[in-house]
Design a protein around this nucleic acid. Structure first.
Lengths: 147, 147
DNA sequence: TATTAAATGATAATCTTTATAAATAGTTTA
DNA sequence: TAAACTATTTATAAAGATTATCATTTAATA
């Protein structure tokens, strides 16, 4: 399944006229196979075995390229590093306040909020972002074990 | 009205056992009177007339204190500087992609999303954030004038 | 007013991300 | 296939926001 996804993604790269370098391929592959939402640094560290000479800038460059093509979404949270998400089906995220885990959360897109906002504010709405925050099940268990 | 708000805020500071220094008072006052959502640096620059010796660190320190007490909300957006919001009534924000303007947008809190997320993910949800993005009326006009 | 803990100011440090520029390597074309 | 053309990579410096450190100052209160 991920192999197929990777193939599709690479086709999209080719169509966009983007060169497929080993480093780029590896970044993309890592994003697709890892089920997580890694930071640029995590990707960098994960690939330094294969590419001991790879620069951090290369990771950032490739993430920007992938994002511009629309293969990757960048999740930004204040000071912390951005995280990158390769799952392009529409979904929201829920984030653990304690351990930082990010879990996908499917919910119908909030179109009605967007249309109301257009009426009220006069903006032309392009998109929205929403995240939920809370405590994940693991951290809830850790808590209950302490008491 | 803002005078009253400022008074209330200062009472809350006193109750919390937080000292009211001239700098802290000025930061709070600026946040309340300015209808905008300033960055730390904007506050710093706005107050350097009154406090030529004030350190940027002082602005950050005070913003952290005010946030911890619950008088101020920090709005974080990736790389860009955080913005600080003193309007503690529940509301969302809509942000202009072109000029960065942030406008308050009132909408009933999305409680049903939170409760559904709890069921689906097993998280204990504490809160959520949502922002809308688009083009504000000013920037729409600028565009139409160009064509 | 004297005391004491908290806050300030100056500065250095940290951390993420971007810019720069020379070297390298895909891709295209002859 | 080899040469040529660029995009990409690498290494490094730089930028920008925020935090840490620590000596100095100051607000609160007894």
């Amino acid at each position: 399944m991920t192999a197929r996804t990777l193939g599709k993604a690479i086709n999209k790269l080719k169509e966009s006229g983007v060169r497929i370098t080993p480093q780029r391929h590896a970044v993309l592959e890592y994003l697709i196979t890892s089920e997580s939402h890694p930071t640029a640094d995590e990707i960098y560290k994960a690939l330094e075995g294969k590419f001991p000479n790879m620069s951090v800038a290369t990771v950032y460059n490739n993430l920007r390229v992938l994002r511009n093509i629309g293969l990757v979404k960048e999740l930004t949270y204040g000071d912390d590093s951005s995280r990158f998400d390769c799952n392009m089906t529409e979904h929201y995220h829920i984030i653990c306040n304690d351990c930082g885990k990010i879990v996908d959360f499917h919910y119908p897109t909030l179109d009605e909020v967007e249309s109301l906002a257009e009426q009220v504010t006069g903006f032309e709405v392009s998109h929205h972002r929403m995240e939920l925050y809370g405590k994940c099940e693991d951290c809830q268990q850790h808590d209950s074990q302490k008491h």
